[in-house]
């Protein structure tokens, strides 16, 4: 293992300490492993919390900020936070108008977050709702779409639901919009090399020097095929085809697209993927709004990319373009 760290056991806590120290105007850590807005919960505003394992920055903690999330519980690398930490995040996000739990569909996270909701209700009388992201199209067939994993679509969900809460929507309204956003997102990933979890010390999977894997998940979950690496245009073509097979796009549709690095893939290569995606969508007559290209949802130092497409209507587009501010992203 070749990593910049002191002790693997301190990896997450030292990362959080550094992040808060670098951006004190945005982040605070009032409780160990719970990141909240530096200014605290906004009175009368619906709170939005998320949570999950470390190793995905800017997801999850990075998106705490104005027009985005209110608080986030964070676990060890690729491991769920405890229910108690999640309950603390709910408490810190509560401005008296209830709290939406908005996160990716992973078994451990769901169990703990449900429990956290019960805790917050029992102890602080906070009403909570849940919306899960299930945007990874290869993780389960369309008939079992509710079993799919949540990946980079979370970025759109945080942004759009965050804007809905910021403009004063009540809990039911913010929940409805989050649900609608989650339903409109589709993602797919591909990987070239694995990453190493500090406390495990060895790579999450093995792959040949000249190979790629299509459909791989954000923690290295197996994809749909593994073969010799293809040219960028063919990779982008297949990814978009698979997304459109799940959610057809037609002339006149308005979408936003996120071409995301899994960590080690440079911006240069993301733009090469975006170039082909843009050509293909132009040819179909699909309008791209606010394209995002960069590092939004990573898997440590994994090499690879994900593409997310969200189909927009006027409501979602307005909220996507609303102002937002965190240390990793400004709109």
């Amino acid at each position: 293992m070749k990593k910049i760290l002191n002790n693997p056991a301190d990896y997450v806590d030292e990362m959080l300490e550094g992040m808060v120290a670098a951006h004190p105007e945005t982040y605070a850590q009032p409780v160990r492993r719970v990141i909240a807005r530096a200014a605290g919960a906004k009175k009368g505003k619906v709170g939005i919390v998320t949570g999950g394992g470390s190793g995905h920055l800017p997801i999850f903690t990075g998106y705490v900020g104005t027009g985005l999330l209110d608080a986030c519980a964070i676990g060890d690398v690729f491991a769920s936070p405890s229910a108690e930490q999640m309950a603390e995040a709910i408490r810190l996000a509560d401005g008296g108008a209830g709290v939406l739990r908005l996160y990716g569909n992973y078994g451990g996270d769901v169990m703990n977050f449900d429990m956290a909701g019960e805790m917050a209700e029992m102890e602080h009388d906070i009403r909570t709702t849940t919306v899960l992201l299930t945007d990874d199209v290869v993780s389960a067939p369309k008939e079992e779409a509710e079993k799919r994993r949540g990946v980079a679509g979370m970025v759109y969900a945080f942004k759009i639901a965050g804007a809905a809460a910021e403009r004063g929507g009540d809990l039911d309204e913010v929940t409805r919009i989050a649900r609608k956003t989650a339903d409109a997102c589709r993602s797919i990933g591909m990987a070239l090399t694995p990453c190493t979890i500090p406390q495990a010390g060895k790579p999450t999977f093995e792959i040949g020097e000249a190979e790629m894997e299509m459909g791989m998940g954000i923690h290295g979950e197996p994809g749909i095929w593994r073969d010799a690496i293809k040219p960028a245009d063919e990779i982008a073509e297949e990814m978009l085809e698979r997304l459109m097979a799940d959610q057809p796009l037609a002339k006149g549709d308005r979408i936003s697209i996120l071409v995301n690095s899994l960590g080690a893939t440079p911006a240069e290569e993301l733009y090469i993927l975006y170039r082909h995606a843009k050509q293909k969508l132009d040819a179909l007559g699909v309008e791209i709004v606010m394209p995002l290209v960069g590092r939004y949802a990573t898997s440590m130092e994994m090499t690879g990319a994900t593409i997310t497409v969200i189909k927009l209507d006027e409501e979602l587009e307005t909220l996507l373009k609303a102002p937002a501010d965190c240390a990793f992203w400004r709109v």
Binding site: S80, S82, A83, E84, M111, N112, M115, E118, M122
Partner: peptide, 20 residues
Amino acid sequence: KAFQRVSSSSYGTLLATGFM
């Protein structure tokens, strides 16, 4: 809460769920 804090395996979470 105490139980879940130190024992967040699935069995631990289930027992804590029962208590809750």
